[in-house]
């Protein structure tokens, strides 16, 4: 019993990180129809920027804040201006291909230009465990969960309580109607890219202490972000959260009770089951086909 609780808590913490990456992925899709296959690399790049900042002497919190700003420029504004804007008119596929190219480019640039090694990354939370009902719960897991929860609740509050947030939701739901209502669609889409960049930095901060900073760390996080988004429902923000946590917990349970070797396969199996049984995702609404 104790160990199951332990697995669920640490799985939820891991899942919360997947959910952050998935959330950014879903927001981009809703607002601009962008499927970003480089989402995993969007987590890897901030991890290294934070490391560079820290090697320049900055404490972790300062490195985190500086990286948020750099990522907003690099992965938010530049990504949108250079890659997304020219391609989005041509439909989904060219952008998917470009993001695949970007994924290879960023990964190999880090490998060739910097290092192929894995670098340790300091945890923002204290080490150690405490015991509840026979389960050893680590402070890092609790801290990760709390931090992710604050970010997600903050984002939800922004999207639902502020005028800008509601305008962004309007753009996501119906771009044309939003434009008719006088919403600056381009600006709202840009905000979405900025939010995606920040979510990626947060995911990097939380995941890198466990995964280590490595040029190919996105290979594992990226696919889980896509699967979490689809499992939960591609057109629902809450879906990304549910999908992420579900993958995190099931991975842990399967890894412990079935086989640690196949932990990485859990997301795919869950994805296949969900699209067979409930194609629109667990929380998603069926979309009408656009002709």
């Amino acid at each position: 019993m104790g160990e199951l609780l332990q697995l669920i808590v640490s799985g939820t913490a891991a899942g919360a990180i997947y959910a952050l990456a998935a959330l950014g992925f879903t927001l981009l899709w809703q607002a601009s129809g962008t499927i970003n296959f480089a989402q995993g690399e969007f987590v890897m790049v901030p991890a290294f920027i934070m490391l560079f900042c820290m090697s320049a002497g900055a404490p972790l919190w300062l490195a985190f804040l500086a990286t948020c700003v750099i990522a907003m420029l690099l992965l938010g504004v530049l990504f949108k201006r250079i890659v997304v804007d020219p391609l989005i008119r041509h439909g989904v596929i060219p952008l998917v291909i470009a993001s695949l190219g970007l994924s290879i480019g960023l990964k190999q640039l880090m490998r060739a230009g910097y290092s192929a090694q894995a670098f340790p990354f300091p945890s923002p939370f204290p080490s150690g465990h405490f015991a509840i009902a026979g389960a050893a719960i680590s402070y890092a897991d609790v801290g990760t969960l709390l931090f992710a929860a604050i970010i997600v609740l903050g984002l939800q509050a922004f999207l639902e309580r502020t005028v800008t947030g509601r305008a962004m939701q309007a753009v996501a739901q119906n771009t044309d109607a939003a434009r008719v209502l006088g919403i600056d669609v381009r600006r709202m889409v840009l905000y979405t890219f900025l939010i995606n960049a920040v979510l990626a930095v947060v995911a990097a901060l939380l995941v890198t202490p466990a995964y280590l900073a490595k040029f190919d760390m996105g290979d594992s996080i990226g696919p889980k972000a896509f699967f979490a988004a689809i499992i939960g429902g591609f057109n629902q923000t809450r879906g990304a959260l549910l999908g992420g946590v579900l993958i995190g917990v099931l991975e842990n349970v399967v890894g412990f009770y079935v086989s640690p070797a196949y932990k990485e396969g859990v997301a795919l199996i869950l994805f296949l089951v969900v699209i067979l049984v409930r194609p629109e995702g667990l929380l998603g609404k069926a979309e009408e086909r656009k002709v």
Partner: peptide, 21 residues
């Protein structure tokens, strides 16, 4: 060029999609 080949290849694909889809 070692690993630089793949890095350049990746960015070249992005450029290709933009200019010569």
């Amino acid at each position: 060029m070692q690993n630089w080949y793949l890095a350049i290849f990746g960015f070249a694909v992005v450029a290709l999609m933009i200019w010569l889809p």
